[in-house]
């Protein structure tokens, strides 16, 4: 029983970080109707920013986390300006955005390989590796931290989306950009906001992943999982992205426990194909014709 609970916590912890990344996909998809495959690059850069904020600048953990969040948010906005904004002005089809996103993703990865180098780097040890003990349940400190920080970040995002004026405008624009423009919403501003929000969460996720595992230029590939989670939950739906991520985290964890850890990715991608065949809108997604 105790090991079962332990695994649930592990699953929640990994799932919550997937959720941080998945909401980034969903935010962009809900407004712009394409999957931003450069999101992994932003997460990777967030991981490096967090690493250097800790090791070179010797910032305390929370400060480094904030720096990673803002740094990644800024990168996401610049990326939008360079890779997507010109396409938007020309009303280019969704496929062009995806190709541009993939190009940007490859560029960022290789840019880091060429400048920082391809080697694996580890975060300095900040937290005691000794687990928390609750009764006879052992909880890794970093796992608990990942879950808590992710939950707080997602809570802030949900507050912005549900309770603020800009959040209302984001929800309105996700239904009809034209309707929003008629109400005086500057859609460029909304796109700026979703990229900065998605980017900041990506920075947090990158730093958490970096701490849990290691940092390397291809770490962005982890976003494949959060993309699957976003599709699973329903692209464009934020609650869907969170639910899909948590489920995927739990499924993966229990697959590992059952002795199928080498099948973990296989299971995740099988799930993606299954969802696309059986229920393309995911658990909570909006129905659109063109899922680009």
């Amino acid at each position: 029983m105790s090991s079962f609970l332990q695994q649930v916590i592990n699953g929640l912890s990994i799932g919550s970080v997937y959720a941080l990344m998945a909401v980034g996909y969903s935010l962009v998809y809900s407004i712009m109707n394409f999957s931003n495959f450069a999101h992994g690059g932003v997460i990777m850069l967030g991981a490096y920013i967090g690493l250097y904020a800790l090791s070179l600048l010797s910032l305390p953990f929370v400060a480094a986390l904030v720096v990673a969040a803002f740094g990644a948010g800024l990168i996401a906005v610049v990326l939008e300006k360079i890779a997507y904004s010109p396409l938007r002005r020309r009303n280019a089809p969704g496929l062009y955005f995806i190709i541009s996103a993939m190009g940007a993703s490859i560029f960022l990865e290789n840019f880091v390989v060429a400048t920082i180098g391809p080697t694996f780097r580890t975060y300095p040890q900040i937290f005691d590796s000794k687990p928390f003990m609750i009764g006879d349940i052992a909880l890794g400190r970093i796992d608990v931290l990942m879950f808590v920080i992710s939950a707080i970040s997602l809570g802030i995002l949900m507050f912005i989306i549900e309770k603020t004026k800009v959040g209302l405008a984001i929800r309105a624009t996700s239904y009809s950009a034209k309707g929003s423009a008629f109400m005086g919403v500057n859609v460029d501003w909304i796109i700026f906001v979703i990229f900065i929000l998605g980017g900041m969460l990506a920075g947090v996720a990158g730093m958490l992943f970096g701490m849990r595992y290691t940092v390397y230029p291809q770490i962005g590939i982890i976003t494949n999982k959060s993309f699957i989670a976003a599709v699973f939950g329903g692209l464009g739906s934020l609650p869907g992205a969170v639910v899909g991520s948590i489920l995927l985290g739990l499924i993966e964890t229990f697959a590992s426990v059952a002795g199928y850890s080498t099948y973990r990715d296989l299971i995740a991608f099988a799930l993606l194909i299954l969802i696309l065949v059986v229920r393309p809108t995911g658990l909570m997604g909006k129905a659109t014709e063109d899922k680009a």
Binding site: L168, R171, A172, S174, Y175, S176, G179, F182
Partner: peptide
Amino acid sequence: EGRVIFANL
């Protein structure tokens, strides 16, 4: 024309 209301809100 066609109202263009926000059906999700």
